[in-house]
Design a protein around this nucleic acid. Structure first.
Length: 256
DNA sequence: ATCCTCGGCGA
DNA sequence: TCGCCGAGGAT
């Protein structure tokens, strides 16, 4: 007979996290117990440091008691954040777990090593630049993977694709309007800085070298007063909440 | 290969 | 004593 073990939802952690307590049944430590936690994706955690590393700053475990699974106010113990090899977070299903803390190598490597993030390096222009040190590397033309993606509403019907204004022109290989649309929509979401398109003239001739990966694959464009006034007139005609994503963010594009 | 379990080290 | 994690055995 197989002993079923209860994994109980842990209220102190984000939804989906389960806790399990296993009693040791033999050996010198018989009668003692081990506590494990399971992420929503099924990855097993067997210590507080391991859990802390995984959740990062999104959850403050300072007063979290690993054994009981409850927050214990007034229990401010030290919580050092060592980086060790279980940073490689492929879960049981073979899928990469989401929400892993940043400075950790997520790509496959025969060496299970964390990334040492150097943010202070006098004399080195690049690494001293906080913007660049924080920025994740991006694949050139990564937008191509967005090809074919369509938005849909709750009834699963594919919504009308948005038309791009003639002023926007694509740059790079495999240039098509649907990729460009996805790229711009993505850029608006991901970046807090202005979307300008590819400013460098060289990017048009040799995008593989001159491409600015934080900008969408389109030529530099300008928005005129004419665009904006037309935009305002369209406002009242737009159907409400037709997109799951924020229509406010998309609106400058779809009707311009 | 992964998973489970208990030993054993260090705080 | 307890938390953490290595490592051997199980699967």
């Amino acid at each position: 007979m197989v002993m079923e073990r209860k994994r109980t939802e842990c209220a102190a952690l984000p939804p989906g996290w389960k806790k399990e307590e296993v009693i040791r049944k033999s050996g010198l430590s018989a009668g003692k117990s081990d506590v494990y936690y399971y992420s929503p994706s099924g990855k097993k955690f067997r210590s507080k440091p391991q859990l802390s590393r995984y959740l990062g700053n999104s959850v403050d475990l300072a007063c979290f008691d690993f054994r009981t699974g409850k927050m214990m106010p007034g229990k401010l113990q030290k919580n050092k954040q060592r980086l060790r090899h279980d940073a490689l977070s492929i879960s049981k299903g073979g899928k990469m777990d989401l929400n892993t803390t940043l400075p950790i190598r997520q790509t496959a490597s025969i060496f299970k090593q964390p990334i040492t993030k150097v943010t202070t390096h006098p004399g080195n222009k690049v690494k001293t630049d906080l913007q660049r040190a924080t920025e994740q590397p991006r694949q050139l033309f990564w937008e191509r993977r967005l090809k074919g993606l369509r938005s849909s509403d709750v009834t699963e019907e594919v919504l009308r694709t948005m038309d791009l204004p003639k002023g926007l022109q694509s740059v790079g290989p495999d240039s098509s309007d649907d990729i460009l649309l996805s790229a711009i929509a993505s850029a608006l979401h991901m970046s807090s800085s202005p979307i300008t398109g590819q400013m460098s003239v060289a990017a048009e001739k040799n995008p593989a070298i001159w491409l600015n990966t934080s900008q969408p694959l389109c030529r530099a464009f300008t928005v005129t007063d004419e665009h904006i006034s037309r935009r305002c007139r369209m406002n009242t005609a737009r159907p409400k909440a037709s997109l799951l994503l924020s229509s406010e963010i998309y609106s400058p594009i779809c009707d311009m």
